[in-house]
Nucleic acid binder design. Structure first.
Lengths: 205, 205
DNA sequence: GGACCCATGTAAAGGGTTACATGATTCA
DNA sequence: TGAATCATGTAACCCTTTACATGGGTCC
């Protein structure tokens, strides 16, 4: 059962930090959990209604002298309980789909220059993200040293830093490999090789 | 437009290595691209029909003396062209959703023992995968040194090895952090902090 | 006899993304 | 005047996942 609605809990989590409107939630999501969790308006607004009908959040209309009305949502007691209960559950391993790897895996049919082009682009994007994560860590530590959430925010940021650093090394290695690739003459498929093996990389969960 | 059907190309790619039945495709997918791309029967069989009607694959019924008939699919010339054209396109950055990180980000509301429990489990699973990838690399190099696909298979395997090694370090660090976590007294939300900042980690694509 | 593998599918449900839709305010 | 931001939503589509369904063969 991996089809459960997790957006609901992302929204509850964000509302647990402070009351917000749907619009705020979108912006807060981008700014905080954005690099590992994305939500669009079309998931936020319907979910807020659902959460309201389940009694997990309450709302209040705030009129703004200049500008449109805002509908501000807050967590209810019940909402807090649901959130905490969910946080305790072991996360389900989510199925991964990596289009870049899929294209590289079947890359022998292609002139390597195409792959090098998009790998170099992806590498630059990765480096920018990495630097941005590092600067956020530095600023958090110096500007918000006493916040109770700090250790947890740092944990998620360090996840990004660890994996993106590793990714950068892989990009460099891979681009170099592709620049000097020498193809063998055989054409046995990988699939056969692994299938024949006792248990190459099977069902290790 | 991230809604395009990529399963089709995964199937074309697998069929490019050799003709297979739907059942074979499932097994071959698990054995080769399984750790970064999953396909189920309910996506394979309908897609094979679609590919057939588009003329990208052809099929042939093979009777087996013992056992049920097999419907074996092969790439057509047109299928080859479509596959190559797709391989040249720059991969779209896919939205990431990491439930583990989501739970950790809001983890301050929780007793750390829950997180430590599932982190330790996840770490073991990660280590097993890592070792399996390393052994596949070793075996490929020694047993299939001359195959033209080898450099590309190694590239995807090394991706897994790099990122999972980094992940292992992060697991260790994180579990230690959580065992000794000392919470601050403040309760400013992270979101406000980043939103106020000029451009903490925004829209870096 | 029961469990498990081979082999091929269908149906329903659910979630997420894209595109569409509206309207006010602010800034250049 | 036009572009961008604030603010809230709806509708349709597509894909994926889960569950259901069938039937023969093999091994213990």
């Amino acid at each position: 059962m991996g089809r459960r609605n997790k957006s609901k809990f992302a929204i509850l989590g964000l509302l647990s930090t402070e009351p917000m409107s749907g619009y705020d939630i979108k912006r807060a999501a981008e700014a905080s959990i954005g690099y590992f969790w994305q939500e669009g308006y079309s998931s936020i607004y319907p979910n807020l209604k659902k959460l309201l009908s389940e009694g997990l959040v309450s709302n209040k209309v705030e009129a703004q002298t200049p500008g449109p009305d805002r509908i501000v949502y807050s967590l209810t007691e019940k909402g807090w309980e649901e959130l905490k209960a969910w946080l305790m559950l072991e996360p389900e391993p989510e199925p991964v789909r990596n289009e870049l790897l899929l294209k590289l895996f079947f890359g022998e049919h292609l002139d390597a220059k195409h792959q090098i082009r998009y790998l170099e682009k992806a590498r630059v994007a990765n480096e920018i993200r990495l630097k941005s994560l590092q600067s956020i860590v530095a600023r958090l530590k110096s500007e918000l040293p006493d916040q109770s959430g700090l250790p947890y925010w740092l944990i998620t940021l360090k996840f990004g830093i660890h994996t993106r650093t590793a990714l950068d090394a892989w990009f460099e290695e891979t681009i170099n490999d592709l620049k000097t690739v020498v193809k063998g003459s055989g054409s046995k498929p990988f699939t056969k090789f692994v299938l024949k093996a006792a248990d190459g990389g099977k069902n290790v969960e």
